[in-house]
């Protein structure tokens, strides 16, 4: 199966706040990440805040610079693709952001917000756009007269529905959803999850779902990648990863959400301390200072991402088996 959207050895570096005279310090937010999204699936990317997951999403969307590696859309390198191909990609890859208060322009009526992608891409005339907005509002479960109202007149969950309607407007193939649930109440989260699942069934959408919360993505994800300090530490099918995580980091994340983990629980595996600063990553395996299983090998040699079981990869010297 060929990938729809793919990163190959993607690295993203940001120049540090160096002035003319000060030495420049750069931060490597993403470190050689390879991911591929297959048509119709949901790929979830999980990790703590600061792990670089948002940066990967932004690089895919063309909002963050690609320092090394490639991003491919339908097999074409985005760095070298034609203008027309890039425009097509921008229409077919849409985004839903975390904060439904920040992602809707407070000065625009909801109808204009949802129609904005259509207007930027020049799809349809005014009347057609209006009809499309009405249909989209119905699909996300909002009344048609919401189009004339302003964002501040809606609740958080309703705003997230508006953001989803905007993402659906240009009939995309892929939706990149960056923490689409974390700003919402738990009761609303399940409604939005159901909506996303329903839309995926109806439209055959491909989701790239980013979250810090393994419990939240369990319902929707087909495959899950765990990210730590900009590196993929584990990558597996949902059931394999939730039932038998191979990397201590993934296990610690699962331990934090007891209601879904079906693996054997070992006490003392909860995450301790904070994630180190990407300005000064630890030597060897970047997870070793927080890892209960760490040995001297871990502090000197970085583990490679290797296959530990069929369709299951982990980057650990001492995987849990």
């Amino acid at each position: 199966m060929s990938a729809l959207l793919e990163t190959r050895d993607l690295s993203v570096r940001f120049g540090g706040g160096g002035g003319l005279l000060r030495k420049k310090r750069s931060v490597q937010a993403v470190h050689g990440v390879s991911l591929s999204l297959h048509p119709g699936e949901t790929l979830a990317l999980v990790g703590e805040s600061g792990s670089g997951k948002t940066t990967i999403a932004r690089a895919m969307l063309g909002l963050a610079p690609v320092s090394d590696g490639q991003i491919l859309y339908q097999g074409q390198d985005t760095a070298t693709m034609t203008r027309a191909a890039r425009l097509a990609m921008r229409r077919e890859v849409q985004v839903v952001f975390q904060d439904p208060f920040g992602s809707l322009d407070p000065r625009l009526p909801v109808g204009d917000i949802i129609a904005e992608p259509l207007r930027i891409h020049g799809i349809g005339g005014r009347g057609e756009q209006r009809a499309r907005v009405a249909a989209l509002l119905a699909q996300v479960g909002l009344p048609a007269d919401a189009a004339s109202r302003y964002p501040h007149q809606f609740s958080g969950g309703q705003r997230q529905r508006i953001a989803i309607a905007r993402a659906l407007a240009p009939e995309p193939k892929v939706i990149v959803a960056d923490e689409p649930l974390s700003a919402l109440d738990v009761s609303i989260q399940s409604q939005i999850l159901n909506l996303l699942a329903q839309l995926q069934r109806e439209r055959g959408l491909t989701y790239f779902l980013i979250s810090h919360d393994l419990a939240a993505v369990h319902h929707l994800a087909d495959r899950v990648a765990a990210l730590y300090l900009g590196r993929i530490v584990e990558f597996a099918g949902r059931d394999a990863l939730y039932s038998s995580p191979a990397h201590p980091y993934t296990r610690a994340l699962l331990d934090a959400v007891p209601q879904i983990g079906r693996h054997k629980r070992v006490p003392g595996h909860a995450l301790q301390g904070d994630m180190p600063s990407p300005l000064a990553p630890p030597s060897g395996c970047v997870f070793h200072p927080r890892c209960a299983r760490a040995t001297s090998e871990c502090s000197t040699t970085a583990p490679a991402l290797v296959t530990v079981a069929p369709q299951h990869q982990a980057a650990c010297h001492h995987p849990i088996v």
Binding site: G62, F97, G102, S103, E116, H121, P170
Partner: peptide, 13 residues
């Protein structure tokens, strides 16, 4: 830096 501007930028605005 606001997300509604980022959303427009991802469209290629």
């Amino acid at each position: 830096e606001r997300e509604f501007v980022l959303a427009a930028r991802t469209q290629g605005a």
